[in-house]
């Protein structure tokens, strides 16, 4: 709750809150800011390029098969004559969609699951964390193949598969943080004032672990990108003519003489991964200045 003091005739300057000072520290970190800019630009291009390029990503064009990069097709074309520039960004779009959506689910589920397990503790904690342990035991690829044989191959499924295993780490991290916050005196002060457990979690626990969580989330997104690429590399999840970075890289790897087929999608992905890593690093430094 923010109190407005204007009508009370008090000069009560609000000083920089936690998040604003984090941002001002972050903005001084050039590497992190550049990385952030690259991420934003790539995301925007993934949205914009397929819409405005006027070139279809899925139409076969027999007249322009396997062209190396040139002025018309900046990234060249593939074995069906499709423009790689457009395909790279439509693939990026799919990849980002899966990664961001999965990261969002991971954040939501991981935070609440971990915070409840850590805060309530005791038997509830034991049962909840054993469930996590059991899920950890399931081999990822095996799990995906099982899902696909049961429900058929679809993009939604690869998203479900990735989200289902990725929240486990997050919930463990959040639980650990919660355990340490739970014994802080400000949480006990809230208890002594009769604040309900749910309010304590949402008002005191989650805001105080958000810093760690955000850094971890920023590190999770590239993980998701890699996972979705791995799935599509094996032909799971996204299917032709739709594409993703994983699929493009897999194609490129099979046509090594057409070097551009591998170089551009892989290059984009590596740039993205590095940017996320640097950005997360900068975020961590900004959150925890020492």
């Amino acid at each position: 709750m923010i109190f407005k003091t204007k009508n009370l005739d008090i000069d009560a300057p609000a000083t920089k809150g936690f998040w604003r000072s984090v941002f001002s520290r972050l903005s001084r970190n050039k590497l992190a800011m550049t990385s952030g800019l690259i991420i934003v630009t790539l995301t925007l291009m993934c949205i914009v390029v397929p819409i405005f390029s006027g070139v279809s990503y899925d139409k076969t064009n027999w007249g322009e098969i396997m062209q190396s990069p040139n002025m018309v097709h900046w990234f060249g074309t593939d074995s069906l004559g499709r423009d790689l520039f457009v395909r790279s960004f439509i693939g990026g779009r799919i990849t980002f969609e899966i990664a961001f959506a999965a990261a969002f689910v991971v954040l939501l589920v991981g935070i609440f699951y971990g915070a409840i397990a850590g805060y309530v503790g005791g038997k509830v904690d034991t049962v909840m964390m054993r469930i996590v342990d059991i899920l950890y035991g399931i081999p990822f690829l095996f799990f995906c193949i099982l899902l696909i044989t049961l429900f058929g191959n679809s993009m939604a499924l690869s998203f479900v598969a990735i989200a289902a295993i990725s929240w486990l780490d997050m919930s463990r991290i959040v639980r650990g943080q919660t355990l340490s916050i739970k014994h802080k005196e400000y949480v006990e002060a809230a208890m002594v004032s009769g604040v309900s457990n749910f309010k304590i979690i949402t008002r005191h626990v989650i805001p105080n672990l958000l810093g760690v969580v955000i850094v971890y989330a920023a590190l999770t997104v590239p993980n998701m990108i890699v996972l979705s690429a791995v799935l599509s590399f094996f032909g799971l999840g996204v299917t032709e003519p739709m594409t993703s970075w994983g699929l493009l890289i897999s194609d490129g790897a099979q046509n090594m003489q057409a070097w551009w087929l591998l170089l551009f999608p892989a290059g984009l992905m590596i740039i993205t991964l590095l940017s996320f890593a640097f950005f997360a690093n900068g975020l961590r430094d900004a959150l925890d200045p020492r």
């Binding site: 003091t5 008090i10 009560a12 300057p13 000083t15 936690f18």
Partner: peptide, 8 residues
């Protein structure tokens, strides 16, 4: 003092 009300 009252003007400290919005500080951290």
């Amino acid at each position: 003092t009252q003007n400290q009300v919005n500080r951290y």
